[in-house]
């Protein structure tokens, strides 16, 4: 399977990763090689096989509904790139 520029641009948007003009061909070629690897899966009949999401057939454990967290915003925000008035700052978003 061979990806074109349009597909690479679409993937770039989905992944929020910039692919500039000079990289498009290389990225397209490399991703296409990987998709070729994927195509090896198609020959196998999986009609009666159910998908497996987890290695072990465990079920979800539940946590009691109690508040256990304490306010740690100062420590947690110490690693944040841009904070003001305890808020994380991003370029203006318009609702």
């Amino acid at each position: 399977m061979s990806l074109g520029k349009t597909e690479v641009e679409y993937i770039s948007r989905l992944a929020a990763i910039e692919v500039n003009e000079s990289e498009v061909n290389d990225v397209a070629a490399k991703l296409s090689n990987i998709l070729d690897l994927f195509s090896q899966m198609q020959a196998t009949d999986t009609e009666n096989v159910s998908p497996m999401a987890h290695p072990l057939d465990q079920v979800q454990r539940l946590r009691p509904d109690v508040v256990t967290a304490v306010d740690q915003h100062e420590k947690l925000q110490s690693v944040a790139p841009k904070v003001e008035n305890d808020l994380y700052l991003v370029p203006q978003v318009i609702e």
């Binding site: 994927f38 899966m41 999986t46 096989v49 998908p51 497996m52």
Partner: peptide, 11 residues
Amino acid sequence: YYLKAQKLRRM
């Protein structure tokens, strides 16, 4: 891709 791969995982 994804669903197929999950089935192969089981196999």
